[in-house]
Amino acid sequence: MSRLTIAKTYKMYIGGKFVRTESGRSIVVENTKGEIAAHTCHGSRKDFRGAVESASNAFTSWSGITGYLRGQILYRMAEMLEGRREEFAAAILTTQKITPAKAKKEVDASVDCLVRFAGWTDKYHQVLGCSNAVASDYYNFTVPQPQGVVAVIAPPAPSLLGLVALLGAPLCTGNTIVAVGSDLNPVPTAILGEICQTSDIPAGVINLITGKQSELFEQIASHRQVAGIYSAALSKKNRILVEASSADSLKRVRFNTFSDEDWYDGDTVASPWNIEPFVEMKTIWHPSAC
């Protein structure tokens, strides 16, 4: 007699806790055969607001710890992901008609991507900052620093790698993240929360929402506590919507267009020029004299 398998209902990861959406709504995730594979939360605007609150509260401590420590935490995240490669590959394959080898490749690339960002935490200052030779008696230097809460709108696919690559860039500098996962396959987003929780990422630093992205664009872009938005693969219509609504608080908005090949190229996704949009350059002057 065949055993009834338990179809898991995934929660969202907000403020360091696994929570159900306040709306009570859920999304049925069907596998490639059209069977019910899982349920995920259908996150609401209110969930997003709560997540921003958590991220905002976590910002001071996350941006305040040393880059060395932040790097170790991100590396720990990579280690945890590495340890659950099979599970993530399976999660990717839930809804996506790709070969198991491709799914594995995506997980591996996600791990590598995290490793890259882990390395940036105490180096981006040196690549993006500088000292400036002003023509007067001042010591003058420019240092990058994080902005605050950055909202990430993940691409539909690659569902894991796209999310990891987009959140890694703002995260490594000390921003805190509210990410809205892939519409196409929310399962990797949902289980990435477990990686966060077990890898010393402080509560609120990464918040993961599943649901229908299009319902949230307006809310994301108009929320004044959100300092920046990072996305890839948005349609022109949605880019207009997001950018125009971002104008009220002058968010830093970055739309990338990565090809499938790009996603797998660490030099591209983890380039310092994808980190740069989510740091603010601060220039400090100080007199230099006895």
Binding site: N132, A133, V134, Y138, N140, T142, T283, W285
Partner: peptide, 10 residues
């Protein structure tokens, strides 16, 4: 200091 400007300073 205050209100110092220089071409080399962002």
């Amino acid at each position: 200091t205050y209100n110092k400007f220089d071409a080399s300073s962002p």
